[in-house]
Design a protein around this nucleic acid. Structure first.
Lengths: 131, 131
DNA sequence: GTGGTTGCAAAAGGTTTGCATCTGT
DNA sequence: ACAGATGCAAACCTTTTGCAACCAC
């Protein structure tokens, strides 16, 4: 779900929106700052975090945690999971695992736990790094 | 796999080992410090982290990340997953999801990604908090 | 005395907060 | 003038590091 860039946005916000629209894998706040820097916008990290927070509460982006001690962000989109390469750190997406929702329902039934979300991430070595 | 408490351990280490042996859900470094405090051992956080690190490299405990901005630790044991209650923060364990490994193999085949590990955690509301 | 353990202070990152300033309408 | 956006400094929290002190054998 690409972000719509409207006229009432500031230059920083437009650049941030564009950044997300062109993003190929989840980015952390540093990558956002570096990108803004690169296109000539010197932006404070506070501003970056505030804009991220706005996008989060508007439900336009998602916060991800791969256990790196920091958060990553990507456009909210169809539910999917990630393949994280331990070597080059590349992150690929892939679509839903069939049955996972069914199994979720089963777990919920067995444990009387009402499941509202899950995190499923795979770690390993990507094709390139295997070579 | 309970930790074996041997004579060559220090008092702090013995208490930490016992803490892990009695642990019912993953703990963060604060909970470890609080426990040591409670039994009269004033311990520095550096020491806690260092002992955690030793246990990690010895492969006796596992590091978990539920996206809280900090790590949690538990005894290494049979592969399992967690049900995390968003309200009371209680963490339950449950056993392997059948098929997940099979699906993992399938994903690996389709993506040419060599999967070495995965993270699967469920979030929701536990039975008690639903009441 | 040597190695391993601990404490302390500091630093490194990521993230948040308070407050003042700026900008556009 | 007002609301919203930004910058800046400081703080907070988790985690790590360097160094000195300590303890046990």
């Amino acid at each position: 779900m690409k972000l719509v860039i409207t006229d009432n946005l500031t230059a920083i916000q437009k650049a941030t929106y564009l950044f997300f629209n062109n993003l190929t894998q989840p980015a952390d706040y540093c990558q956002i700052m570096e990108h803004l820097d690169k296109i000539g916008l010197k932006v404070n990290k506070t501003t970056v975090y505030r804009n991220l927070n706005t996008l989060l509460v508007e439900n336009k982006i998602t916060e991800l945690d791969f256990g790196e001690g920091k958060k990553r962000y990507e456009l909210r989109q169809n539910h999917h999971h990630h393949l994280v390469c331990n070597q080059c750190k590349k992150i690929e997406c892939f679509e839903i695992i069939q049955d996972l929702h069914q199994q979720e329902a089963e777990i919920a039934k067995n444990t009387e736990f009402k499941i509202t979300s899950h995190v499923l991430e795979f770690f390993g070595t990507c094709k390139v790094c295997q070579a």
